[in-house]
């Protein structure tokens, strides 16, 4: 069994959830919403955290994890409760701009099929666009950093095209591309290409020239210097560009899905916005944030493997 202090940390989320449950059920609603789903959700969460708290008394690892996250979780629960009170229960914030958490949950419940389909469609677009953007960006960045002549043409292009917002491209894209799908992929790829190119170029240019001098004395030709010295040397900076590209891709999703897609998070968000159903918009944004966070974690894992050589040298 754990100490009293530890116990309070372990049980804090459960207590917060139970307070939420009581207030949610007992306080009357001032706005229109289906409370039932939320009740089920909170009850379920209470059960989960109770199980976790109990078993933490027996499993050390679970105990550590729970007590570590306990403060954050409890604060989030209480903030959500406060938000529910000022929206659903007291109606202090104007609808439809500030929907209650109960209403947002409703969006998940009623539209789960559409949302799932949208996630799939968006993922397809994002993955294609990201890969293409990277496959174009890294070579461009390498060439840009290596060959002065390349920069003569590329620099103006990068500087002018890069900052153009995705929505401005829409009229051109639809005309220029054979299908609107390829146009949408292009938009995402473009948003990824820009930071990846800039960062790759920066990474190459900032490499200590001693590396290249040594390589030349070892018999390295230009190709070897570019692919086996510049590229791995610039890898840490390239990864920064890739993280930025990930964020750009998600941000461009809304514009990219304006072109006649059948489903997608951006499409769903546009729809919700047009209908002023902001609770649906926030629901979709929640999913988008989760997806982006998941992708970022995945990218971190990839980076950690490839850049394992950095482990002793930089703040990890």
């Amino acid at each position: 069994m754990q100490t009293l202090k530890k116990q309070s940390a372990l049980w804090a989320p459960v207590v917060a959830l139970m307070i939420t449950l009581v207030i949610h059920i007992e306080m009357p609603n001032k706005q229109l919403a289906n409370s039932g789903y939320y009740t089920m959700l909170i009850s379920f969460l209470t059960f989960i955290f109770a199980v976790w708290a109990i078993s933490s008394n027996f499993k050390q690892k679970w105990c550590e994890k729970l007590s570590y996250y306990s403060l954050f979780i409890t604060v989030v629960i209480l903030l959500t409760l406060i938000y529910e009170i000022i929206t659903l229960k007291e109606g202090l914030l104007p609808l439809p701009f500030f929907p209650s958490p109960v209403k947002i949950l409703e969006a998940y419940v009623t539209d789960w099929a559409v949302l799932l389909k949208s996630v799939a469609y968006s993922m397809r677009l994002l993955i294609l666009g990201y890969i293409i953007g990277m496959m174009l960006g890294i070579p461009s960045g390498l060439m840009l950093g290596w060959y002065k002549k390349f920069g003569y043409w590329m620099n103006p292009i990068v500087r002018i095209i890069g900052p153009i917002p995705a929505t401005a491209w829409i009229p051109v894209i639809l005309v220029a591309f054979p299908t609107s799908f390829s146009g949408s992929v292009f938009l995402i790829a473009l948003s990824v290409w820009f930071p990846v190119t800039v960062m790759t170029c920066s990474g190459v240019c900032n490499l200590n020239k001693s590396y290249f001098e040594i390589a030349r004395t070892l018999g390295a030709d230009e190709r070897y210097q570019l692919l086996k010295i510049a590229l791995p040397g610039a890898a840490p900076t390239i990864f920064v560009g890739m993280f930025m590209g990930l964020g750009s891709a998600y941000a461009t999703l809304i514009a990219a899905e304006m072109l006649g897609v059948k489903a997608g998070l951006g499409w769903y968000i546009n729809w919700a916005q047009g209908w002023a159903e902001y609770y649906k918009l926030y629901a979709a944004l929640g999913i988008s944030a989760l997806m982006c966070s998941g992708c970022t974690s995945l990218l971190f894992k990839v980076r950690d493997r490839i850049l394992v050589w950095q482990k002793g040298t930089v703040k990890w």
């Binding site: 829409i170 009229p171 639809l174 005309v175 299908t179 609107s180 304006m258 072109l259 006649g260 897609v261 059948k262 499409w267 546009n270 729809w271």
Partner: peptide, 20 residues
Amino acid sequence: VEWKVYPPPQLQTAMDKGEI
């Protein structure tokens, strides 16, 4: 019926291209 959304100025282009 299949509904596809485009910004209003692009609808005609989409029709010209046969997407709708």
